[in-house]
Simulated assay, not measured.
Amino acid sequence: MLCLGIESSCDETGLALVRDGKLIAEKLASQVDVHAVFGGVVPEIASREHLRVLPVLLAELLLEQSLTAKDLDVVSVARGPGLQGCLLMGLNFAKGLVFSTGAKLVGVNHLWAHLTAAGLEQELQFPSLGLLVSGGHTHIYYIESPLKFTLLGRTLDDAAGEAFDKTAKSLNLPYPGGKLVDDFGRRGIVDKKMFPVPYINNDNLDFSFSGLKTAVATYVNSHPELRLGSMGIPESNSEPHEIVTARNNMLASFNYVVGRKLEVKIERALKRNSDVKSLIVAGGVAANSVVRKVMGKVAKRFSIPLVLPSLHLCTDNGAMIAYAGYLMASSGCRHDLNLEAIPRGRVVPCDWICD
């Protein structure tokens, strides 16, 4: 079975081919440079970029593999959640391919695809506990199979990834700032009292990061010397040593709080779901060094394996959509041309047709 995956939920245009569960080729067009000047993603611009590059990437992908669109058995596409206009670009492109080739159409839950992406590199064990940490979502799932996810906890306001980007922005670090926060934080020393670990003195599995964002903004406002004069990447030789050290210590302390917050909630979830066979951590923030280290320690304490996708599979990509589509199609699940895009804020329905 040859499955094409199409990812266009935000600012990455990804296409990939998975044959019988194995990734054979992929293409990715990033819009980071386009949106960096605005300090975040501009939906209208992102949609137009998807429309521009989708046919180009598909032509290149098929040509390099000596394939044609007629060779596709399945076309899987991220149908949500995401930016409505961006999702529609990918969805309509997928429908056109299906209509012209006769391939099966599969609409993929973008969030679930993140959590099954590691299956491209290793065998997944079920049931598993899944932690999705990204720019738009922070969710905990009980995963019984690639087609059955139960949401146990979610963020009540802001996602972890947004907290990273807003922290970077408060210091005039360029978008996307999560990697820079991680990189500079690794050079600093953690002060556990600098920021509070919010919303852990409760009995639920939900998250809240708005308080941490406010604490960071307050700290930076009271220490304006940490903010760069203009947007850019700080150079240690061009600033006083004490400012560089203080900024790195602040970012190290921020990373610590995020890691500690995730640790508390995941430990709580594992205690309540003692039958899980592994801990899966996915999404863009799963590339953060502190998060990976902390989750490794948690998994070790509970004597289960930690499943982490490779760094290139943590961010949005076509490979995860192709693999998730392959898993669904292999189980006899598909959609018809009435498939709808589901924007962020709405639950993606399990409305597939099973043959």
Results as ranks from 00 to 15, higher is better:
residue 6 I to Q: 01
residue 7 E to M: 03
residue 7 E to K: 02
residue 11 D to M: 03
residue 14 G to Q: 02
residue 17 L to R: 05
residue 17 L to K: 01
residue 21 G to Y: 03
residue 22 K to E: 13
residue 24 I to T: 11
residue 26 E to R: 13
residue 33 D to W: 13
residue 35 H to L: 12
residue 39 G to S: 08
residue 41 V to I: 09
residue 49 E to L: 09
residue 57 L to H: 09
residue 63 L to V: 08
residue 78 A to F: 06
residue 78 A to Y: 05
residue 80 G to D: 09
residue 81 P to C: 05
residue 82 G to Y: 04
residue 84 Q to Y: 14
residue 84 Q to K: 13
residue 87 L to F: 07
residue 87 L to V: 01
residue 89 M to T: 10
residue 91 L to Y: 11
residue 92 N to V: 00
residue 92 N to M: 10
residue 98 V to H: 08
residue 98 V to F: 04
residue 98 V to W: 03
residue 100 S to I: 03
residue 100 S to H: 10
residue 103 A to G: 07
residue 104 K to Y: 15
residue 105 L to S: 10
residue 106 V to M: 04
residue 110 H to C: 13
residue 110 H to L: 11
residue 112 W to A: 14
residue 115 L to W: 09
residue 116 T to H: 09
residue 117 A to N: 02
residue 117 A to Y: 04
residue 122 Q to M: 13
residue 123 E to G: 04
residue 125 Q to T: 10
residue 126 F to E: 08
residue 134 S to I: 00
residue 138 T to F: 03
residue 140 I to Q: 09
residue 141 Y to P: 02
residue 154 R to N: 10
residue 157 D to R: 02
residue 160 A to K: 00
residue 160 A to G: 01
residue 164 F to E: 05
residue 166 K to D: 05
residue 167 T to D: 04
residue 170 S to E: 09
residue 174 P to T: 06
residue 175 Y to A: 12
residue 177 G to A: 03
residue 182 D to M: 07
residue 184 F to K: 01
residue 194 M to G: 12
residue 196 P to D: 14
residue 197 V to M: 05
residue 197 V to E: 04
residue 199 Y to S: 11
residue 203 D to A: 14
residue 205 L to A: 05
residue 206 D to H: 14
residue 212 L to E: 06
residue 212 L to W: 05
residue 216 V to D: 07
residue 223 H to G: 03
residue 224 P to K: 07
residue 229 G to F: 08
residue 234 P to R: 03
residue 234 P to S: 10
residue 237 N to H: 12
residue 239 E to I: 06
residue 242 E to G: 07
residue 242 E to Y: 14
residue 242 E to K: 12
residue 250 M to N: 02
residue 251 L to N: 08
residue 251 L to P: 03
residue 252 A to W: 03
residue 252 A to Y: 07
residue 258 V to S: 06
residue 263 E to Q: 14
residue 268 R to K: 15
residue 269 A to M: 02
residue 274 S to W: 08
residue 275 D to P: 01
residue 281 V to K: 00
residue 295 M to L: 12
residue 298 V to Y: 07
residue 307 V to L: 12
residue 310 S to A: 14
residue 313 L to R: 00
residue 314 C to I: 00
residue 321 I to T: 10
residue 330 S to A: 15
residue 331 S to N: 13
residue 332 G to I: 01
residue 334 R to K: 15
residue 338 N to V: 02
residue 340 E to V: 12
residue 344 R to P: 05
residue 346 R to C: 07
residue 349 P to N: 06
residue 351 D to C: 15
residue 355 D to I: 08
